[in-house]
Every structure is written in structure tokens, then in C-alpha cells.
Design a protein around this nucleic acid. Structure first.
Lengths: 209, 209
DNA sequence: TAGATTGTTAATCGATTAACAATC
DNA sequence: TAGATTGTTAATCGATTAACAATC
């Protein structure tokens, strides 16, 4: 799988969907699948699916389709799911601990090594074997353990400063759950605007047809 | 604000962003704003912003720009944020309670009236004044209280069945956090694939330029 | 009025779909 | 081989950007 011209974000957004659906199919013991069948499962057109895959190289075989195992591995490789990222969770409230607890995280290559919080009643507790540390020790910990990724679940008011600081400390990726968009040169930031999705629901509740 | 031709989902997805940013601006006491200034704040082009708004009617004034208060109200109206939806949370684990607890929910017109769980140690507890009820009573409760919206935070394995059931019980909207895509005729379902966003992060960590 | 900025039409760009030759 | 289905080019569609007349 050689990487060529920049692939558009529209395509990247579909890759995790392909990965999930192909994984489901593999679980059912199915070894090959055509773009036609994938179309039924994903709702995308067969043509689009072939186009998407061919951004990264030819994964299929004419007259046969795609081998499900091979296809899943290719997509996992493209998405970087085979790497391990040392990850911390900043903010050990309900959301932070929910995320630390979440099955999907572990299987995706993000290894959570610590949580951080100011609350003294929380410090020292363990969430699924991972300790909650004092927020005061954040800088030191990040430096000493060369942390790759931080998941931000602190309130909006402090989130921005923490993200700037983590960027300076050379954290490479940020998964930000605080409802503010932050962009920092040289750091990959995914802003999760959970609220926005709720408004979308609200819109379609009103304009349902 | 009269509604005309179907507005594309691309536009709808931007509306919550406009709403959030205009709200911030209002907090700062700013009363008018041009598409040019909004462009700087949102990262969308001024032209696109004007196009987006004009899907719903002319909110601005030539030579002046947009009145921030009026604009926010128009967008809130379009998004249906002025309605109140009777909402339940199905699954009172860490994620379910985090969501029930979440500031953003209350301000967006979704009023959480109950949580549901099987776990007897949780039943009867209160999260921010909202009681956790026995999952067995879900059907009865939904019927008697004409629930509009359900937030699903139960595991994947049971999520699909619960969503089908809720649809039959006439719940109008579903905010689904289980990592399965569900579509049911006549019910508005927003599937939140929190995992997919993580994979996107993973991709950009690998292909950062 | 003159200046500013919208609303809207036209031009461009990018993404999706259709079609089919290549080939397993 | 014949049938199936990919990989890829060309056609279409939709979304974004540019431009500017309308007008506050």
C-alpha cells in the first residue's frame, strides 16, 4: 500500500466505517466480498467504494472481489491502527472515566496509561487498572513518559490552556471533548462536538419527511 | 423564516457551528457581525456563510451585516432548539450518566426525565435530580409519558433490539452511542460513532504533513 | 450621498456515479 | 473458456467560490 496524492477527508471519514463493517463480516466467517455487497451493507455505491479503495492501491481481484481479511488489514494499516499510542485522559469526571473504560479505545491502538484530575478524592483511584494522578503532575508525566495522545474531558474554560500546554510538551494528537474548537500548528486535533450532533438530531426531528 | 427546497446535510452540519460561534460573540457584547468576520471565526468562506444563511431566508442587511441576536435566534429556530423534547437515557453506566450530567444537553431543549438500567444497585439512585429506573419498566414509562427522544448508551449487543422497540413505542428520535448503525423507517436516528473519530485521529497522526 | 456588505447569479472545483475495458 | 467483478476513465452532479448588482 503505497501512499500517493493527498486523500480527501471525505474518503478518510468513510474508512472507519468500512473497517467496522468488514470486521462484522469476518466475524460471520465470510472470506470474500464484492463492492456490490459492500454497497448494500454500507449504503455507499459500489462505484464509490472501489474509488475509495483505489486511492490507496488495488486491494481487489477482478472477477473475485475483495478478500475480507486482507481488506481489513489494509484499512487498519492505512488508519494506523497497528501502532500503539501512549495516551492520557485529562479530566477524570464521568466522561473521562467513561472513555477510559471504553472497549473501543483499547482495540484501536490507544493505550491509556494515566488519567489526571484536580479532585483530591479521585487522585489515587484506579479506573480499569489505570491510576488517576494529580493534575499538578501533568507536565512532568507527559515529558517523562513521552505521551503521544491526550484525551481532553475537562470543562471548556480550562480546555484551551491545557491543549496549548500539551502541544508545547510535544503531544502529537489531541482528542478534544470540550465544546471549543482548538487548532494548533503541528498538533493533530480532533474536536468532538458532541453537542453539534444533538442539534442535528433536533433539526431532523423538526424537519422530518 | 419560511422553509423551501430541501437543504443539504452539509449545510445542516454547519448550523450548530454558527450557533455556537455567534453565541460566543454575543457573550462578548458584540451586536453586529459581517460574513467576513464570521469567516475568520469559523474558517468557512464569507461567500459560503452567506449562501448557507440564504437557504433559509435573508437574515442580513446590505451595508450592515447581521445582527448577532437576531441571527442566533433564527438559527436556533431552524435547528428546533426552542422546542422541548422529553428525553430518557437508556443505560446508566459511566457514559449514560456522563451525558445525563452534561451541561450542553439541558441548554439544547432535550429535557432528561429518567434513566434506565438493569443493575439493581443503580436503580433508585438520582443523577442530578433524575432517577434511575428499572429497565423492566421502560415500555410502560415511554408509553405513559409520551417520550420524544431516547439516548442509547447500552452495549452494542442489546442496543439494536432496544432501538427497534423504542421506535415501535413511537419515540421520535434516537441518539445512539452504541457502535452499530441502526436505521428505522419513521424514526430519526443519529448514530454517534465515537470510535470512528478516533480512527480519523489515528490516520492523521500517521499522515501528518 | 458614499461606503459597506448583503443576496444571488455565474464560474469553478471536487466528489459521486456511470460505463467499460482489463483481467482474474 | 465464460462469467464476474475489479480498476479506471469519462460524465454528471452538487457544493464551493467568485463576482457583482442591489440596497441599506
Amino acid at each position: 500500500m503505497a501512499m500517493r496524492n493527498k486523500v480527501s477527508e471525505t474518503v478518510i471519514r468513510r474508512l472507519p466505517i468500512y473497517h467496522r463493517i468488514i470486521s462484522d463480516v469476518i466475524t460471520k466467517g465470510i472470506e470474500r466480498i464484492s463492492s456490490q455487497e459492500l454497497s448494500k451493507l454500507t449504503g455507499f455505491t459500489a462505484s464509490q467504494i472501489r474509488q475509495d479503495f483505489n486511492n490507496f492501491g488495488g486491494f481487489g481481484q477482478q472477477g473475485y472481489g475483495y478478500n475480507t481479511e486482507a481488506l481489513r488489514n489494509e484499512i487498519a494499516e492505512i488508519l494506523g491502527m497497528n501502532y500503539e499510542y501512549k495516551t492520557i485522559v485529562v479530566g477524570a469526571g464521568r466522561l473521562g472515566t467513561a472513555i477510559a473504560d471504553y472497549e473501543g479505545i483499547k482495540n484501536s491502538g490507544f493505550k491509556i496509561v494515566a488519567l489526571f484530575d484536580h479532585d483530591e478524592t479521585k487522585i489515587g483511584n484506579f479506573i480499569h487498572g489505570v491510576e488517576i494522578l494529580d493534575m499538578e503532575k501533568l507536565d512532568e508525566f507527559v515529558k517523562e513518559n513521552s505521551i503521544d495522545v491526550a484525551i481532553i474531558t475537562v470543562p471548556k474554560t480550562v480546555a484551551v490552556d491545557i491543549i496549548y500546554k500539551l502541544s508545547e510538551l510535544d503531544v502529537k494528537g489531541i482528542w478534544n471533548f470540550a465544546p471549543v474548537d482548538v487548532y494548533v500548528e503541528g498538533t493533530v486535533i480532533e474536536n468532538i462536538r458532541i453537542n453539534d450532533s444533538l442539534f442535528k438530531l433536533s433539526y431532523y426531528l423538526k424537519n422530518n419527511d
